[in-house]
Amino acid sequence: MVEEQQKRVEEHTSRIVEEIDRSMRKMKGEAYRCAATCCDNETYSIQRVQNCVKNCNSSLDEAQEYAREELERVQNRLQRCVMDCNDRIKDAAGPNPSQRDVEKYSEIFDQCVKKCVDHYCDTLPILQKTMKNVLSEKKYLRSHK
């Protein structure tokens, strides 16, 4: 049962990462083209090329860091929820549970984890929408500096 939930988490997470990546591709292309222009300038010193490339990538780096932090925040919430399920089961089962109790609590744990994963999966589309909005604002701000 827990393996099934893990697979759901991986599939949903993969989908949002793919979608966010797609929404950042124009920004990536702009950053790479900008960096290429820096490298094409033969009059620039090494330091000036490095600063130019760094400047080209700054908005992209910020956007990628934002996306990583947001996804990590939601994943941490899922982890805490599963840990809470585990703690509750340990508290309820006591130090020496019988085999029957182990089976009963195992089922309760699975149900609890499923609720955590359900909430996580329900949260991802909202997170995706918010992230896309923020990233489009970042793109807007960058192109109008």
Rank of each mutant, 00 (worst) to 15 (best):
M1W: 12
M1T: 14
V2Y: 12
V2Q: 11
E3M: 02
Q5M: 03
Q6Y: 07
R8H: 11
V9W: 03
V9F: 03
E10I: 08
E10W: 00
E11M: 08
S14K: 10
R15V: 06
V17Y: 00
E18C: 02
I20E: 04
I20S: 04
D21C: 01
M24Q: 06
R25K: 13
R25S: 14
K26H: 08
M27E: 01
E30R: 09
E30K: 04
A31I: 06
Y32G: 06
R33T: 08
R33I: 00
A36P: 00
T37D: 13
T37P: 00
N41E: 11
E42T: 07
I46T: 11
Q47G: 15
R48T: 10
V49W: 01
Q50M: 15
N51T: 05
N51G: 10
N51H: 05
C52G: 06
V53Y: 01
N55R: 11
S58K: 13
S58A: 11
S58F: 03
S59I: 09
Q64D: 07
E65T: 14
E65A: 12
Y66S: 04
Y66T: 04
R68T: 13
R68N: 06
R68D: 04
R68Q: 15
E69Q: 05
E70C: 00
V74L: 09
V74H: 03
Q75M: 09
Q75R: 13
N76F: 07
R77I: 05
R77H: 11
Q79W: 07
R80Y: 08
V82Q: 13
M83F: 09
D84T: 10
C85T: 03
N86V: 13
I89D: 04
D91L: 15
G94W: 05
G94I: 07
P95Y: 01
N96D: 13
S98R: 08
S98L: 01
S98T: 15
Q99R: 14
R100M: 11
V102I: 15
V102T: 08
E103P: 02
E103T: 10
K104M: 11
K104C: 08
S106N: 06
E107S: 07
I108Q: 10
Q111T: 09
C112A: 05
C116D: 08
C116A: 06
C116R: 01
V117C: 05
D118I: 06
H119I: 04
H119R: 15
H119A: 14
H119M: 08
Y120V: 02
D122G: 14
L124I: 04
L124Y: 04
L124M: 04
P125K: 06
P125A: 05
I126R: 14
I126H: 06
I126W: 03
K129G: 02
K129H: 10
T130N: 09
M131W: 05
N133P: 01
L135M: 09
S136T: 13
E137D: 11
K139A: 01
Y140L: 03
Y140A: 07
L141F: 09
L141P: 00
L141A: 11
R142F: 12
S143Q: 15
K145S: 12
K145G: 02
